[in-house]
Amino acid sequence: MSRLRCAFLRLPRLLLALIGAALAAGGAAPRGGEAMATIPAGVYRPVSRATTDPETVAVAAFRLDALPVTNAEFLAFVVAHPRWRRSRVSPLFADETYLRHWAGDTELGPLAPPDAPVVNVSWFAARAYARAEGRRLPLLAEWELAAAAGYATPRGRDEPDFNRDLYAWLARPTPDVLPAVSSARPNIHGARGLHGLVWEWVDDFDTAMVTGESRADAARDQNLFCGGAAAAASDPGDYAAFMRQALRSSLKARQGTASLGFRCAADLSPP
C-alpha cells in the first residue's frame, strides 16, 4: 500500500525535478534583477585572532549572490553533473549527510522546497557548484564584511531590529522545512538572508587554529600548530560572531548540516 502511494507521489516530484533542471539549464535562474549584490570595499575585524594575525583585514569590493543557492538551482547542477548526485558522490567529497533531505538523487521532495536554500551540502560540493557557474565561494573576510551590514546602515550591530532578528534566528532550532530564500529581508547592499536563513560555507572556513576546546585556544599548542600565538578576542561581546566561528571550526570539508548552505561570489571586475 505504502509502496503504491510512493509510486504515485514520485511522478509529480520527477516533474518538479525536470522543471527545476530546465529552469537552471536556462541560465541565470529565477533570480530576477537581484542576481548579485555589490559589496563595497571595507574592513573586516576578526572577532578573535592570534596576536600574529592582523587586527583588521582590508577587503576589496566584490560581488556576492543576493540570495543563497536554492534546492532548485542545486538540483539543476547535479542533473548536469552526475558525479555530484547523492548516489554517486565520492565519500571523499561528501559524507552521508549529503542532500539527505532530498527525496532522491534528482528529486527534491516535501522537505526541500525548490525555492528554499539548499543545505546538507559539503564544502567540496559548494565549491564545485561555484566553479561550474564560473564563480567562487566568498572568503571568510568577504562574507563577514557583507554580513556586518544592517538593513539601513553598513553596521547592523547598531540597528536594534537587525540585532533582534539576528539573535532570534540564532536562538531558534532549525525547522524541518526551510523558508523560501525570498522571505529574507535585504540588507543595505541588497544581499538577503546572510542571517536568518542558513549558515553559509566560505572558501577558507577552516583557518581557525583551534582544537575544538574553545577555552584552551587562548594559548596555541605549538606542538599541533606551527606559528601564530594566543587567540585574543577583539570583542568578546559579539556572541553572534563567536557562534559563526564555532560553527565553522566544527565543520569538516566533506560534512554538511541541515542548516548549512552557501552562495557564490565573484571579483568585481572579472579578469
Binding site: T97, N120, L170, A171, R172, P173, T174, P175, D176, T211, G212, E213, S214, R215, A216, M243, A246, L247, S249, S250, L251, K252, Q255, G256, T257, A258, S259, L260
Partner: peptide, 28 residues
C-alpha cells in the same frame, strides 16, 4: 536540527578539556 556545534566537558573526566575537544560536534 541543532543550529550550532556543541561539545561536552565532563568534570568527572581526567584529561584536557574534560572531553571538550574530543566531542566538538557539528549539527547532525
Amino acid at each position: 536540527s541543532s543550529k550550532l556545534p556543541h561539545n561536552i566537558d565532563l568534570h568527572a573526566v581526567t584529561g584536557a578539556g574534560g572531553g571538550a575537544a574530543s566531542t566538538f560536534t557539528a549539527p547532525g
